[in-house]
Design a protein around this nucleic acid. Sequence first.
DNA 1: CTAGGGTTAG
Length: 640
Amino acid sequence: MSTSSACFSLFKHCKTFTHLLQVHAFAAKTGLQSHPLVAGQLLLHSAVTLSDTLHYALRFFSSIPSPDPFMFNTLIRGFSESQHPHQSLLTYAQMQRTSVPPDSFSFAFLLKAAANSRSLLSGAQVHSHVVHHGFDEHLFVGTTLVSMYAECGCPHSARQVFDEMSQPNLVAWNAAVTACFRSENVRDAEELFARMPWKNSTSWNVMLAGYTKAGELVSARRLFLDMPFKDPVSWSTMIVGFASNGDFDGAFWFYKEMLSEGLGPNEVSLTGMLSACAQAGAFESGKALHGNAVKSGMICIVSVANALLDMYARCGNVDMAHRVFDREMTKKSVISWTSMMAAFAMYGHGDEAIKLFCEMDECGIKPDGITFISLLYACSHAGLVERGNEYFHQMEDKYGIELSIEHYGCMVDLYGRAGLLEEAYEFVMKMPIKPNAIIWRTLLGACSIHGNLGLAEQAKTRLAELDPNDSGDYVLLSNIYAVAGKWKDVANVRRSMSDRRLIKNPGWSSIEVDKIIYTFVASDISSGVKQEAHNKLSEIMLRLRLEGYIAAVSNVLHDIEDEEKHDAISKHSEKLAVAFGIARTSNGSAIRIVKNLRVCGDCHAVMKMISKVYGREIVVRDRSIFHSFKDGSCSCKDYW
DNA sequence: CTAGGGTTAG
């Protein structure tokens, strides 16, 4: 074996940057680093295989007197997968200046760079170079062109490139189908799928993934059942697809079905199931999956451990989430740190979240935009206005992270929640991006917490222009009027709601008992289980009234008679779920509930009383935070 | 020595 091929295989086994440095040092000492093959491998590993070592590749590249096409391609590829895909084009420009001829690989990577930066302009530019260099008939390049145009939001060009391909193979057909789904053109995807000259299981999986991403679960299930051969990806796609659409029962069904077919979970289906449990608040089922992950060794996979952490956090067990973070993660990614921060934030432990952020900083982990959303959210829920303000300004100055509309939204929430409504409004007026509906909705929410009618009306005016059909906004506004006792205005809001045929987003609450999830909707007594919950609730409310409870009647939508108001709020889904939990679980055990909307003020008061009168800890996850009710008070300190 | 289509956490 020659020394250069020995060096070659040494690179192949490089797993860490330190290892790479050692091999590089060896290559330098023996003079092999000037060998094109060796230099190429060094570049490949630093620019592509290892992460966060692109700077090293770049420095080495600039020391090479005349790089060959492989080296240029590798650098273009490295940039295309980096945070700055645009740099690929600059490398290509350098390639042209030094008269190194581009090949099909160069164009494939350049198109990938355009796709990753969602830049139609550079994509089209590269396309013209593809044609100029005569690669437009190349199968790989053509397929990448189809994907690029789809990613860049140009479905017509994607389709045109595909239609002009003289001999599209299976991969090209699959790419064309995916392109249709990307532009939400489900019918075209179906038409292409029907016309495909051959199909293997990947083609079916493309359809399954497309259907689930379009929310067409019925079509996905039907096609899945019709599939001649289901591979592990097919099962994972169904589980993840149903879980991400909030259909937990569906995800569980496919999971059980998969197991009964003799197929074990892989890391993707396991992650999907953990996410289903997280959303549903299925603590017991999630814990069982934890055991599974440990036994199979999949706990070592970062994505699995992250999903596990998130599951515990969303199932109301921040301590277990922290345990996973501290003891079970050999590797931590930005997502691990961010998830843990988000977990602390959800429980109102703003200080813990901030402490974690500082620790992360010291470990040299670079936060990204989503890390800051969690951090600002933590400050907001802990009422740390100054701290949040500081971090907001550091984002660009210190960390070089681009501010997005979500970050501005966090700031509006930060000010608004703290009752600084004027500051919040001023902030909105001064922000450099045009405020969207979510910004105004956040402000409206703050007005609802602090009872500011004038500003609420202004926010509603903006919302009427930006997103007039969100039923939640009408409900918020009518509640603000109701609190102020302005029943005429409540009636007006209600009328405009019905004129637009808007229906109040139905609130539901779920509770897990013996690994079964029971979901309750207000005023629904269609099943025996629900009747049971209603009966228990009546009994509880009677006892609470004896203890001095008076309903907060302003928390209902309209100006109905007082007695009816009592009736409407007494049947809120979270109350039914708690009643069911008290009926079905043993004395003294904690009751965990998930609610899709925010907890209303009356339910909040009732939960506090139940926790005291019945001696139960009640953990309620609403759409944004956790409430832990214990002995008559709540962890949110009535700040939510 | 490199590439195109399907499933993965915040």
